[in-house]
Simulated scan of single mutants.
Amino acid sequence: MPTSADPVAALRDRLTAVDGRIADAARAVGRASSDLTRIVVTKFHPAALVRDLASLGVEDVGENRQQELTAKHGELPDLAVTWHYIGQLQTKKARAVRSAASVVHSVDRQRVADALDAAAGPDSPVLEVLLQVNMTEDPGRGGVAPADIRALAEHTATCATLRVRGVMAVAPLDEAPASAFERLARYSERVRAVVPDASWISAGMTGDFAEAIAAGATHLRIGSAITGPRPERG
C-alpha cells in the first residue's frame, strides 16, 4: 500500500476509488460515467498537486478563490487542464477570473455576467458559464433566486463573449440531497427554455454525488476524497 512517502501513488488510489464510485452510481441509474465530468477541487492545495493530478490523467480542476486560481494558473501556464472557477464571484475580480478560468460556475446576477463579458480582451475565447441557483430560503446565500432564473438566463445569453452552459448549485444542509437535486433539474429546464443546449448541471460533491448523478448532474465537484486533507493554513 502507498504511504506518505509515495504521495502520487496515494493520490492515484484515491482518484481510482472515487472514479469507481462514480461509475457505480452512474450504472445504478442507467447512465454512462463517460457522460460525466469529474472536477477535482484543489482548494488550499499547492500547484504541485494540480501537476500531479494532470500526470494521472485529470483534465478538469476547480478553484473556489480567485487568488488561488490566479496563482496556480500562473505557475502552470502550459498545463493541459481546464480550469473551473466555482466560488462566489465579486465583479471587481471578474477580469482576474476570466484571465485564468475556462468555465465559471457562479454567475448569479446580471452584474456578474456583465463584468465577465466586459473583461474579455480582443482575442479572448468565449467563456463558458453556469448560472448558480440559490437552493435555500436565505437571500444572503450565493445564487440567483429560482423565480429569477429565466431572466438571468435571458440577460446572460445576450453577452457576446459568454456561453450559457447550464446551472450549478449546492444542496442545502437541511434538505435531502436527492430532493434538492431533483429541484435543480427542474430549474435547469427553465434555462434550457431560453438556451436549448444549456444542458450542464453542476451538482454533487463527495458526500452527495450519487444523488446528483441520479438527478441528472453532468459535472461533479470532488475535493478531499481525491486530494486528501487540506493543508494547514498558517
Rank of each mutant, 00 (worst) to 15 (best):
D6Q: 13
P7G: 04
A10R: 00
R12L: 05
R14I: 04
T16V: 10
V18P: 09
G20I: 07
R21Q: 14
A28S: 08
A28R: 06
A28N: 06
V29L: 09
L36A: 02
T37R: 11
L49D: 03
R51M: 02
L56Y: 00
V61T: 07
V61Y: 05
V61H: 03
E63M: 00
N64K: 08
N64T: 09
L69T: 01
T70L: 14
K72G: 12
K72N: 12
E75F: 12
L76R: 03
A80V: 12
V81W: 04
I86M: 04
G87C: 05
Q90W: 13
V97W: 07
A100L: 10
S102H: 15
V103G: 00
Q110I: 14
Q110G: 12
Q110L: 14
A113E: 05
A115K: 01
D117I: 09
P122H: 08
D123H: 13
S124Y: 05
S124Q: 03
Q132P: 08
G142T: 14
V144T: 04
A147G: 11
A147Y: 11
D148G: 11
D148Q: 11
I149D: 08
A151R: 06
L152E: 00
A157V: 04
T158R: 13
T161C: 15
T161K: 15
L162I: 03
R163T: 02
V164P: 02
V167P: 00
A169C: 05
A169I: 05
A171T: 01
P172Y: 05
D174W: 09
E175S: 10
P177L: 05
R183F: 03
A185Q: 01
R186F: 07
S188P: 05
E189V: 05
A193G: 12
D197A: 12
A210P: 03
A212S: 08
A215F: 04
A215H: 03
T218I: 00
H219N: 11
H219E: 10
R221Q: 06
S224V: 11
T227D: 13
R230M: 15
E232V: 15
R233S: 13
